[in-house]
Design a protein around this nucleic acid. Structure first.
Length: 413
DNA sequence: TCTGGGGTCCTAGGACCC
DNA sequence: TCTGGGGTCCTAGGACCC
């Protein structure tokens, strides 16, 4: 009967992943950049010590990168996802009650000698996967987050059973679920610490920030309101969007990008055994350049029947982008959203549907997916996605696909 | 500060119905 | 011209998370 919740959170996860396959990076300052090499999304402790904040735009850091020999990497999500999966499998050795919360975090239900178990978890993940993690244990998820915060700053493990002193030292804005807007509002009302928030009247918080606030306060009091989600609800939407490596003016390039994103989204929903009922496409200019003419627009298309095959979704998205396109603008970003997702197993037909053709197409998609899984993404694709993709985002500093591409396996000499 | 992509949940307000 | 109450559904926008 688990009565404790542990939050296992990897330390500097993306940086730690890079270090697994390049031990020379240990003890050196390392950052990993966002898509398009725009800003910093992961920092090693050495970089944090230099005072470089999360989200810092990389072009502003040129001199610091040079002066401190910071090692800079583009995001290698294929690598990070693969290592994440392995870490989660390790956690499942300890308990079946694992909620994978994000790529680098999981909530676990625990009971018994939780301090000992937490320490064992930490050591095992380090040993089996080479990833350092911190473990925070408490009666609720919100308090487990707080405990993890402390664990990260100390020995890597923290069990929090009487948290008053800790909460008194915690600024309200650092609580999980309080962003900068709510933080500002609470400050205006004189609530500055987590302890003060814990001890407010429920009716007051209900009126201030609604039901979400009530749950949060209860969680701080040790009363669980956010249960472990052991069977995650199927997702409701799927979005693939990217900024381009450079602005684009021509419809031809925009078509390639949108086709690429639609194909990628289609593969994602097929992997999750879902189909989409609605396709939304959006395009936009660079809103950070207010001097340039701005245009952004989106189109929503209801499909006659839910679909997940690349051809249907790419064709739909292409028709949509042709309707949206206005010449004369410098486009910077586009995206494809698949919505009204439903289980692929439910087959809906109407008078005009060609069941035999749908089945053939399903078989073709399974083959395409299996080839792309085996030989790497992009092995088989639609011609409309383009071949050279000169508009593609910059990822100039990406490490190899150490664990997912045969040609990029690490070589021990 | 202007920097990425991908999600979720909640609320308010409008349209519409009886 | 003003006057009631109650309900549902949908959408847009706000807020948060990693």
């Amino acid at each position: 009967m688990p009565s404790w919740i542990a939050l296992v959170d990897a330390n500097n996860f993306y940086v730690s992943c890079e270090r697994v396959f390049d031990p020379r990076l240990r003890d050196k300052p390392v950052v990993v950049l966002s898509n398009n090499d725009g800003c910093v999304v992961a920092r090693s402790n050495e970089v944090k010590a230099l005072g470089i904040p999360m989200g810092a735009p990389v072009f502003k850091l040129r001199s610091q990168i040079r002066d401190h020999s910071i090692q800079v990497y583009s995001s290698n999500y294929t690598l990070y996802s693969d290592l994440s999966r392995r870490v989660m499998q390790t956690l499942e050795q300890f308990t079946p009650d694992v909620e994978v919360y994000s790529i680098d975090e999981a909530f676990l239900g625990l009971s018994g000698d939780v301090a000992a178990i937490a320490e064992q978890l930490r050591q095992t993940v380090q040993q089996w996967n080479g990833i350092p993690v911190s473990v925070g244990v408490a009666p609720t998820k919100t308090l487990a987050k707080v405990a993890n915060h402390i664990a990260k700053k100390s020995t890597g493990v923290c069990v929090l059973d009487a948290p008053s002193m800790v909460l008194a030292d915690l600024p309200v804005g650092e609580i999980w679920g309080i962003g900068h807007r709510l933080s500002d509002r609470l400050h205006l009302q004189g609530v500055e610490t987590a302890l003060q928030l814990r001890d407010v009247e429920l009716s007051w918080i209900r009126q201030q920030i609604g039901i979400v606030g009530v749950r949060l306060v209860q969680e701080l009091r040790g009363i669980p309101c956010l249960p472990l989600e052991l069977c995650p609800a199927p997702r409701k939407s799927c979005c693939v969007s990217r900024s381009f490596g450079r602005p684009m003016m021509a419809i031809a390039e925009l078509r390639e990008a949108v086709a690429t994103y639609a194909a990628r989204a289609a593969a994602k929903v097929r992997r999750d055994e879902l189909k989409a009922g609605v396709v939304t496409v959006f395009i936009t200019t660079n809103r950070f350049k207010p001097d340039e003419p701005q245009y952004s627009n989106s189109a929503v298309v209801q499909l006659p029947q839910p679909a997940n095959d690349t051809f249907t979704l790419v064709q739909t998205a292409l028709r949509a982008v042709e309707g949206l396109y206005q010449p004369g603008y410098q486009y910077k970003k586009a995206g494809v959203l698949l919505m009204e997702l439903s289980p692929a197993s439910i087959v809906q037909t109407d008078l005009f549907s060609n069941v035999a053709q749908q089945e053939k197409r399903g078989a073709l998609m399974r083959t395409v997916d299996s080839l792309n899984r085996q030989f790497g993404a992009g092995t088989v694709f639609c011609a409309s996605e383009g071949i050279r993709k000169e508009w593609q985002m910059r990822l100039g500093l990406k490490s190899p696909g150490f664990t997912t591409r045969w040609g990029e396996l690490p070589v021990v000499e």
